[in-house]
Amino acid sequence: MSLKINIIENRLLSDHWFVLRKYVYDLVRKDGTGLRQMREVYDRGNGATLLLYNTATNCVLLIRQFRMPTFVNGNPDGMLIEACAGLLDLDSPEECIRREAMEETGYKVGEVTKLFSAYMSPGGVTEQVHFFAAAYQDSQRDNAGGGVDDEDIEVLELPFPEAMAMVADGRIQDGKTIILLQQALINGWLTA
């Protein structure tokens, strides 16, 4: 049985970086009782993320970049270690991760595996992230990476055991990256 939702108010609060809206709605629960709720919803579009891994060297390619939300939430330098990722814009998820891999890491991606899609913060953000993994080799490097336009990205090639240790000790705190590293371990692509 699905819930019935009646939207009472849909007000634009901000349209600067992405879109922030305030929703007031009546929710009719499955037992028939009503409940009025108010939520602010941040719409930033959908995205895709990719773990690049090298089975021959037992390494992963990650990036480090400044993330303002982490800075204001206590990350002293605001730098975050992540798997490459980006917003779909008008691309398909696979086109997006191929573009982002080239821009951020400098590697031209070959065959990719779609793992799944997930809402990463469904309590307030509309974004659905599409998760991918792909093997890489040094011969696929096309450029130095580092991002485009206003990005300042450092490319990191890390031994997989070190990346997993960085999750355990808190040096890697990005949710999508932690999930992708765990997928590499679960699927046996790399060894910790």
Rank of each mutant, 00 (worst) to 15 (best):
M1Q: 12
S2A: 15
S2N: 14
L3I: 12
N6G: 07
I8G: 00
R11D: 10
L13N: 05
L13F: 04
H16T: 11
V19P: 04
R21A: 08
K22Q: 06
Y23G: 00
D26S: 05
V28L: 10
R29D: 13
G34N: 11
R36G: 03
M38F: 02
R39L: 07
Y42W: 12
A48F: 08
T49I: 08
T49A: 12
T49L: 09
L50K: 08
L50P: 04
L51V: 00
N58C: 06
V60S: 00
V60P: 01
L61Q: 02
L61T: 09
L62K: 05
R64H: 07
F66V: 00
F66L: 09
T70P: 09
V72W: 10
N73F: 10
P76K: 12
M79G: 03
L80D: 13
I81W: 03
G86C: 05
L90C: 14
S92C: 04
S92N: 09
E94R: 06
C96T: 09
C96M: 03
R98G: 09
R98A: 05
R99V: 08
M102V: 07
T105Q: 02
Y107R: 08
G110N: 13
T113M: 12
F116M: 11
F116Q: 11
F116I: 04
A118Q: 15
Y119S: 15
Y119M: 14
Y119N: 15
M120K: 06
G123V: 02
Q128A: 04
F131W: 13
F131D: 03
F132N: 01
A133C: 12
A135E: 14
A135F: 03
S139F: 02
S139N: 13
D142W: 11
G147F: 04
D149C: 12
D149N: 13
D150H: 11
D150S: 12
E151P: 06
I153P: 05
E154I: 08
L156D: 01
L156K: 00
F160E: 01
P161F: 00
A165I: 00
A165F: 02
A165H: 00
V167G: 03
D169N: 15
I172C: 07
G175E: 12
K176D: 01
T177Q: 09
I179Y: 12
I179F: 13
L180E: 09
L181M: 08
Q182G: 08
L185D: 13
N187M: 15
N187L: 15
G188Y: 01
G188N: 12
L190A: 10
T191N: 15
